[in-house]
Design a protein around this nucleic acid. Structure first.
Length: 374
DNA sequence: TATCCGTGGCC
DNA sequence: TGGCCAAGGAT
């Protein structure tokens, strides 16, 4: 959905001058990234899409290894569409925001089923794909298909908010920022313009300590002479609740661990976890008394305390008390539970939280901690 | 519009 | 039990 914009900036000599300054800088200073086509080469829409989804609210440094892994496992969209969802979740484990992995898989299948295996070039069509929102649709259209479509992410919001010294706080300022980008983006190199804005935001117009002295847009920037780090204006954040819970790691004689699958929706949806209590704010240590123990997956495991682990999610912090136990020889996995063999643990769909629990349990047993997965 | 949804690095 | 931030999307 493109908005009509009649900014006095559009088509103006000033707008053209700004775009030229940015593109000249980009030709000198562009980052070399694994998913980025060399200058002049045609980008692979699959690679652009995959990288853009991974980069949603995620740093470039964190994405790189995952991107390479995914491309090696599934070189094209048909390969990804044909893969079992569980394999995709295992490969995504540790990257966070797991609904992205589920939407990624669903999107690949939709591309194959409804688009003949080729990504559509129009922003309006891209927008209909699962996991593809306003930003990602604009980014794919611009970068992969060179469409003159705004791609407004956090970097661009910051750059524009400073250029205009926008007093309107986020997210109310989104409309004005979108309109500005729509008016300024050049018709000849819209893909490079989109990437240049993001590179500028990532390397020069950084959130704190922006490098205004080397900024190619400094002469256009209203905030430069004031305090650029104060833009964009943002509302204060809510306090983060603190929750507690317990995790029970049950080990079989052959080294297998008891696990289960989390519900498909919600927090860590579809991922693998150890058994445990629910997580509640301000709860007492009620899993340590007799009734609490009865909620463990096995009453005859001689549970003992392994330790505590801390983890911080976006909207709450969590402290988990970890118990370890040994499964009796005749113990059968309860409903919803399954055994993860020792040689399956490294490839399991454990989120980072559960990797912490696992490490805590292994330490309590005196077992060596595995090297970080490749 | 506001809330939910991960993780790791940096200050 | 810090706070902030990162190429946002779904509901």
């Amino acid at each position: 959905m493109t908005r009509k914009s009649k900014s006095e900036f559009g088509q103006s000599p000033l707008a053209k001058s700004l775009a030229k300054s940015l593109l000249d800088w980009y030709d000198r200073a562009r980052r070399d990234l694994p998913w980025r086509a060399p200058p002049g080469a045609k980008p692979d829409p699959y690679a652009v899409w995959l990288s853009e989804v991974m980069l949603q609210q995620t740093t470039v440094a964190a994405v790189k290894t995952y991107y390479e892994k995914f491309l090696a496992l599934w070189p094209g969209v048909r390969d990804l569409a044909a893969a079992p969802l569980d394999d995709v979740l295992k490969a995504w484990a540790g990257l966070g925001y797991y609904s992205r992995a589920r939407n990624l898989h669903a999107c690949a299948q939709k591309i194959v089923a409804e688009h003949g295996g080729a990504f559509p070039a129009q922003e309006s069509e891209l927008r209909r794909l699962p996991g593809v929102g306003p930003y990602t649709a604009g980014a794919i259209a611009a970068i992969a298909f060179d469409q003159p479509t705004p791609a407004v992410d956090g970097n661009v919001e910051r750059v524009v908010a400073r250029l205009l010294a926008l007093e309107t706080p986020m997210p109310a300022a989104k409309r004005a920022i979108f309109d500005f980008v729509a008016a300024v983006l050049p018709r000849d190199r819209p893909g490079d313009f989109a990437q240049a804005m993001m590179d500028l935001g990532a390397t020069v117009c950084a959130p704190r300590a922006p490098s205004c002295l080397i900024c190619p847009l400094a002469t256009f920037c209203r905030a430069r002479t004031a305090s650029p780090q104060d833009f964009p204006k943002k509302p204060p954040k809510k306090a983060r609740p603190f929750k507690r819970g317990a995790a029970f790691v049950l080990r079989r004689a052959d080294g297998a661990l008891l696990a289960r699958r989390r519900p498909e929706r919600g927090l860590l949806g579809g991922m693998t976890e150890f058994f445990g209590s629910d997580w509640r704010e301000g709860r007492a240590d009620d899993w340590a008394d007799k009734r609490g123990r009865e909620r463990s997956p096995c009453e005859r495991a001689n549970w003992r305390l392994a330790g505590e682990i801390d983890h911080v999610f976006t909207h709450f912090a969590l402290r988990l008390t970890v118990f370890v136990g040994a499964a009796p020889a005749d113990f059968l996995a309860p409903d919803g539970g399954f055994w993860l063999a020792a040689d399956e643990l490294r490839a399991a769909a454990f989120p980072s939280l559960m990797r912490k629990v696992e490490a805590c349990a292994l330490k309590a047993w005196g077992l060596p901690e595995p090297i970080k997965p490749a």
